[in-house]
Amino acid sequence: MFTTAWTASPQPPSTGFTPNWSQEGFWRHSLRQVVRLTAGGDRVRIRLSNVYGTSPLRIAGATLARTTPVLGAAVQAGSVRRLTFDGASSAEIPARAEIVGDAAGLPVEAGESVTVTLHLDAVTGPATFHAQAFATSYRGAGDLLADTGGADFGEATESWYFLSGVDVSAGRTDGVALFGDSITDGFGSTPGANRRWSDALAARTGRPVLNAGIGGNLLLNDSAWYGEKGVHRLARDVLGQAGVNTLVVLLGLNDIGFSETDDQPTYRPAPRVDVGELIAGHRELIRQARARRIRVVGATLLPFGGSDHWGERAAKVSHELNDWIRRSGEYDAVADLHRALAGTGGSDALCALSDAYDFGDHLHPNDAGYQAMAEVVAEVL
């Protein structure tokens, strides 16, 4: 019996926030990606996604290895495992599809990082990816599946490609999925340090924690850069994961705030949504989760006074939504992140992030803010 120990929500190829390889794709490359697991087990399998591909994706080969404790593309000598797919060393993933690999024997522990290497010998076309990894992935020419030193991986990016999940033979059913936007994704945390609030929550609780955040994601509308809307992607990104019994929802701030800023050229026109529309979206997430017998925790939106998302109307709608999350009783539990991370002074609707928790844009927390979020959520799990 397997438990999902790591996920990255797939996105369509796009320019994104930082330089990436999603639109150009890969050809005669090896792609090396490092992920941190939140559960341990004796066997490991990977899941690969071509859900935004328009043609079949050929995987010429794949390996799994233990990550070295130092930075870079190196892996621990003697730990490399050749991966198979239905017994074969290569696989073809149809357009709009995902596959699950065979389990490989590699004992791992919660909190340990593993390295997945894919050899892509045929033209992939634009790549299904996850834009904001806050971790480094590597690319090199040719077949580098067995490489341990890492020196031939001469290019780097902070995105994940094709890799959408890692499962371990833990057999646990107490997994927690965090569903949200860039705050859940970890924007503002220290890159390469695993300081997202999903990382902090896993360390705090000892439970498998899955990060289903996408930077810029909206609850009610699709976006070229920011993925499918939350009410559509929940089934794939959360409800289909193994071992999840709790969902934490933190979503809606971009629906409110994008109409206040001129800095989001990829999401125009940005409609002005009212609190009734947002409540309907939250109710749909609750309905879908409960149909799978998953407990649902509602998290209040963080304060954002002074940010590019702020405006009097946005502040009003945010306050109304938070009031509904707190008082309606429709969620099984509430994590009041707004009050926990708010600075002193100002009304509930207008206050800003505490200086101690502000990454610097008055919208995203820093490492300390993400740790504080994890502490609040841990208390209601």
Score class of each variant (00 low, 15 high):
P107A: 05
R47W: 10
F2G: 02
D102R: 06
A88L: 06
D152L: 15
V377F: 03
P12L: 13
G281V: 01
R196G: 04
V209I: 09
R313M: 02
G311T: 08
W324T: 00
D199V: 04
R58V: 15
G165T: 05
G171W: 12
L337W: 02
G125F: 02
L218A: 11
R327N: 11
R45S: 03
V168Y: 14
F162K: 13
A141L: 09
T124L: 04
V35H: 05
Y161F: 13
Y370S: 10
V168C: 09
L210N: 06
F258I: 01
A135P: 02
T7S: 14
A8F: 08
G78H: 05
A315N: 12
G41Y: 01
R268Y: 07
H282E: 06
G142Q: 02
G329E: 02
E320R: 00
E109N: 11
Y138G: 09
V238A: 15
T15R: 12
T84W: 08
A151N: 12
V176K: 11
T124N: 04
D222E: 06
W27Y: 14
E98W: 07
A340R: 07
F187A: 11
L118D: 10
R313S: 09
D237F: 04
G343T: 06
L218M: 14
A8L: 10
N194W: 08
S55Q: 11
V70L: 11
T15W: 07
E98P: 01
L48R: 13
R268L: 10
D237S: 11
A8N: 15
R292I: 00
A62C: 15
D143W: 04
D167H: 06
Q23K: 15
L285T: 00
Y267W: 10
D332S: 10
V166S: 07
V297S: 04
G192S: 07
S30H: 08
R47V: 09
D174C: 10
R28A: 15
T173R: 15
N366H: 07
A77P: 01
G171S: 14
G188N: 07
P303T: 02
W21M: 12
H282V: 01
R172K: 07
A88Y: 03
V273M: 01
G61E: 03
G175C: 13
A156L: 09
T184V: 09
E330Q: 04
T84C: 12
L253W: 01
I93R: 02
A110T: 12
E277G: 09
D262Q: 14
G343I: 06
V35L: 08
N221L: 07
L219W: 00
